[in-house]
Design a protein around this nucleic acid. Structure first.
Length: 294
DNA sequence: GCGTCCAGGTCTACC
DNA sequence: GGTAGACCTGGACGC
């Protein structure tokens, strides 16, 4: 798959924590990203992805030979996950206007990795709320292992229907989702029934404020989760503050001293609709050390 | 090994 | 509109 100029595979993989959540797995030795994807007809395909100078190289494994249309579907999912088609030229032009952000354009940062579907991103986001990262990893892993379609040793992320058919007790006991269980179940049932078209959020014509309202109307999606999900939808108006980024901000700009959220928001306000992306990259600039040529 | 405390976002009830 | 308490789990800590 051809990639646009300044696309950085490994940087995108490390843009935030998603690559360490099932069904993704990272192989640091080969600098590859593995993922089990489910296509529309229910077939599970394992993809092993590597970055090249101008392309993503994908090795696909499936039970049966894949038809061309199935390969196209996989290609579209991979492009969506790695944000290959996102046009960041306007963002890079904006970053060049500020001396402290010029590194963003030159390093090709700014593509935030996402899941194969908006549903998966939203469920994962709910699983990041009010708990440690290790618990998030456990909940997401349990969802894939218990409810995802399988290919040999790999399991794809479960569909909305698969989660919708479970019970609150199952989600509590087997998934360890705790009090999030009724929220996850209600969300999955609304998506599975067609009452809520979350996949449409990626191409919605709604203004960001209206979309934010729609996202926060889902129980379990508060300001933090909604702000982060909007970033994965290509909307960067919200800072999506949580305890980790607040700590980073306090350390970077106030010697570790706590400040009000309004103070943080004031600093990034002049950066306009890209402020959420500037903020995230500003807080994670040290991750540059993880960078590879691709 | 056991008990206790705390961190982590969101919801709901209440003022 | 703002605030307090509940929700649930894993990890840290003290014994």
């Amino acid at each position: 798959m051809r990639t646009p100029p300044r696309f950085r595979f490994w940087r995108t993989v490390h843009s935030h924590g998603w690559s360490s959540l099932a069904p993704f797995e990272i192989d640091r030795d080969t600098r590859s990203l593995g993922v089990a994807l489910r296509i529309a007809n229910g077939t599970v395909v394992h993809c092993s992805l590597r970055g090249g100078p101008h392309a993503i190289i994908a090795a696909l494994t499936s039970k049966n030979p894949l038809r061309n249309d199935e390969r196209d579907e996989i290609r579209r999912q991979i492009a969506g996950i790695l944000r290959v088609d996102d046009d960041l030229s306007e963002f890079y032009a904006e970053s060049r206007r500020y001396r402290k952000y010029r590194w963003i354009a030159t390093s090709g940062a700014g593509r935030l990795m996402r899941a194969g579907s908006v549903f998966e991103d939203a469920v994962k986001m709910m699983c990041t709320t009010n708990c440690s990262w290790s618990l998030t990893q456990a909940m997401v892993r349990n969802l894939s292992l218990e409810l995802g379609d399988r290919l040999e040793g790999f399991a794809a992320f479960p569909t909305a229907s698969a989660i919708a058919q479970t019970t609150e007790l199952f989600l509590r006991k087997k998934i360890r989702a705790g009090y999030r269980s009724p929220y996850l179940l209600e969300f999955a049932r609304r998506v599975a029934s067609g009452a809520l078209d979350v996949e449409g959020w990626r191409h919605s014509n709604l203004g960001t404020g209206d979309l934010y309202e729609q996202v926060t109307s889902v129980k379990g999606m508060g300001p933090y989760a909604a702000g982060n999900l909007l970033r994965l939808l290509g909307r960067y108006d919200y800072l999506a503050l949580d305890s980790w980024v607040r700590k980073q901000y306090y350390a970077k700009y106030h010697g570790g001293r706590k400040v009000r959220d309004e103070t943080i928001e004031r600093r990034y306000e002049p950066l306009g609709p890209w402020r959420g992306l500037f903020f995230w990259l500003d807080m994670t600039r040290e991750w540059l050390a993880l960078e590879s040529p691709f």
